[in-house]
Simulated scan of single mutants.
Amino acid sequence: MSRIGKMIIEVPSNVEVKIDNNEVQVKGPKGELSYTYSPSLTVEMNDNIISVTRHDENKTTRALHGTTRALINNMVIGVTEGFKKELDLIGVGYRAQLQGSTLVLNVGYSHPVEFSIPEGLLIEVPSNTKVIVSGYDKHKVGEFSAKVRAVRPPEPYKGKGIRYTDEYVIRKEGKTGK
């Protein structure tokens, strides 16, 4: 039995959950999300507690059991609290700024790199070397943060680049190190 899959999901009082035709819809104060799960699973809600069970022991069904439970739990957390990722720009002259609904990064290229901000995400730039991505959909927050980081990932010699705030970059010695 999946350790994650057999855990229950407690639904707060300010969240509304609908389950019908293999689809879970979660609506809360921050937004609304939906997920279509596999027909080989059963999702039930009793007394503000959601449980996920599986019908058989196929390999794919076992794999989907924990995944489905985790995705539904992330939906409930997202519409109540939301998710946040923080990025740091480390390097001489590296900076970020918001221009309307566009995030503009100057990270050592001959041109600035621009990102249009997807719907449902909130981008903050408290200082010119820090970017905060927040939203209620964990997938969108992580995907946008990864795209921004991929523009200039941290390099191991000087540590320059875009990294997550809690990320540790392993540093290497240069040619002179023995």
Rank of each mutant, 00 (worst) to 15 (best):
V43A: 07
P12C: 06
N22H: 15
V17L: 06
T80R: 09
S2W: 04
R95Y: 14
D166K: 14
K84S: 14
T53C: 07
I162S: 04
G135T: 09
T60A: 08
P12G: 06
N14Y: 14
E124Y: 12
K178R: 11
A150G: 10
G91A: 05
S134T: 13
L33F: 02
K18G: 12
P112Q: 13
D137A: 10
K27T: 14
V17F: 08
Q99E: 15
K130W: 04
S40G: 00
T36W: 00
E155K: 08
K158N: 03
L89Q: 01
T165G: 02
P12R: 02
F115C: 11
E57C: 03
K175S: 13
G100H: 13
K18F: 13
K6Y: 03
V79P: 11
H111A: 07
V141E: 05
T60P: 01
V15F: 00
G78T: 03
E114C: 13
P39Q: 00
Y164F: 08
H55E: 15
I170Y: 08
R149K: 14
T129V: 02
S145A: 14
E173K: 13
E44K: 10
R152P: 04
I170Q: 12
N46D: 15
H55R: 15
V26K: 05
K175D: 11
G78R: 00
F144C: 02
P156K: 00
T53W: 10
S110C: 00
E173G: 15
E32V: 13
